[in-house]
Design a protein around this nucleic acid. Structure first.
Lengths: 190, 190
DNA sequence: GTAGCCTTCCTAATAGCATTAGGCAAATGC
DNA sequence: GCATTTGCCTAATGCTATTAGGAAGGCTAC
């Protein structure tokens, strides 16, 4: 019996690709098994269960996204860095909708700590260095930036912006203008 | 044989409640049938299929959310209105996580047009009247506000803010301060 | 080289889910 | 009171995840 050569890594990659094609929630152990030409049960020698597999895809996506954002931000500061971060983030989400959905899945605390999630937070903080916002407001700004990025991408992907003719890229650019403005004029405590 | 008195309305309500308890994606035809003490197949006299049922929950949630936001915003303007809108939105999402997830599900265009989604957009535009932002930037601002609200709530619900001690309500308040600032200083086209 | 072991794959089985077809009985309309 | 509609049933199909237990490939130690 010829072995199919399944490994956790290949499984995770295949799951990520399948997610981008058909949606993260439609990634199924059965479909992956078919793709590798093995029986479903065989995959359980490599993964604990379906949730385990999805978690691996999430970790892969978080790492990839962090890499791309890091590359985009390198050597930039201020609004330049903000726009580079934001564009890299949105670009990844649009090229890899399934992986992106995975990256947004809830991880148990231990897994989250071992993920690239920390790098995301760090890089966002790095952006804010150009705006000189002290703690605790810096954390508030990190959360706001994360919210806008994720929110925009998420609504856009869900088709929520299709009811208006206004160009979605243009709105994105203006949103980043407004964010830059908000960070430069960060409101003092009333 | 005593009839259970299932109706589409009762089914939809039960599905919404179940969603809030166990999560929207864990709402299942089987669980609902158990709840009503009937067989699964019986529900198909009332709904077309599971997707149809989920759509009904989405429409219910969109309408409820629009009602609550409308009530909160009534009689307010400027930043007052912004904060009232945002707080009502976030409050609904936290009290009804399952319904909220439903409200964010992708609807086919026709259903979307018949939904309360339009009211949401209108109310957001109403908020912006206090800031006198002309088109097309007004649409950009609508999209930005929607992104922040949805993004924040979504990340918060997914536990993404749990890795830092900073109070989540405080960050929210400061985010709204910053949004108000961004809208008041809406950047001119460079 | 071969004996033994670990790993990869298999078959078989269970269980939960969505959905359809076809039938009986209760509720409703006239 | 009878016919029709409607609500519920049983039965079946097919997809999914998961576990148990077995056989054979491939590597390690002698």
């Amino acid at each position: 019996m010829v072995r199919a050569g399944v490994t956790v890594e290949r499984l995770t990659r295949a799951a990520a690709e399948l997610a981008d094609e058909v949606g993260f929630d439609r990634v199924t152990v059965a479909a992956l098994a078919r793709g590798f030409g093995v029986k479903e049960a065989s995959l359980y020698s490599h993964i604990r269960n379906a949730h385990d597999l999805k978690t691996r895809v999430a970790l892969l996506a978080l790492a990839e996204l962090a890499d791309e954002v890091a590359a985009a931000v390198a050597g930039r500061a201020g609004k330049d860095a903000l726009v580079a971060f934001a564009d890299a983030y949105r670009s990844y989400a649009k090229r890899h909708p399934g992986r992106y959905a995975a990256a947004r899945m809830e991880l148990d605390p231990e897994t989250a700590r071992a993920s690239a999630g920390g790098r995301h937070a760090e890089m966002t903080r790095a952006i804010l260095r150009g705006y000189e916002i002290p703690e605790p407001d810096q954390t508030d700004a990190v959360r706001m930036l994360g919210s806008v990025f994720h929110g925009y991408v998420s609504l856009e992907t869900a088709g929520a912006f299709q009811h208006h003719l206004r160009d979605v890229d243009a709105s994105w650019a203006r949103t980043l203008d407004a964010l830059d403005s908000a960070l430069r004029n960060w409101p003092p405590l009333a």
